[in-house]
Amino acid sequence: MQGMTKVGDGVTAAVLRRAPMFALLWWVLAEGQSEAWGLGAVAVATATSASLYLQPPSRRRFSITGFLGFAGFFLWNSLHGGAQVAWMALRPRPDLRPEFLELELALPVGSPRVLMLNTLGLMPGTLGVRLDGDRLKLHVLDKRLPVAASARALEAHIARLFGVEHRPPGRPRGGAVNDIKPQSGERLSPPSSGWERGEGP
């Protein structure tokens, strides 16, 4: 690829970072049995080299604090989301106000967006439906809930996790609640032709 020395240094550092992770993973999978380490050494070496091939070392690094922040945020919100949807399902009179909303993503293309799209489905009241350029179509269970604010909070956590910039569109920083706009056919033009037509074929 590039100059040998530079790449070589990066590879060594990556091996030193990744091999202990795979060793830990092996220890967990083998449930701590020490006689399995012969096979484990082979598995760790294979996994490390495969990871170098599939995900070459790059300058972009995960931040540990970013990860812990994201994990805590995610754990709390999946508790909240699960409890909320359980309540919505079990209460005597269901009171849903589902709606499509559209959100302009403030994250760069690639893994941060993929993570955003996927975690939204596990957050309270939101579900990613379609990503169209920068615009993400969301389905929300109850449009009265502050979904835009929580989606922005999730974005900020993901941005910190990947160490990228997070700029909600329209305004310089934070507080973006109004840039999420309802997509209920009558009030606004639909994002693509004819998606409002009811059941298809």
């Binding site: 999946s78 508790l79 699960g82 409890a83 949807v85 399902a89 589902p98 596990l122 009241g125 579900l127």
Partner: peptide
């Protein structure tokens, strides 16, 4: 869509 919300969130929790 609403059924997806129910399954994805409640079952995972």
């Amino acid at each position: 869509y609403t059924r997806l919300h129910a399954l994805a969130k409640a079952d995972n929790l």
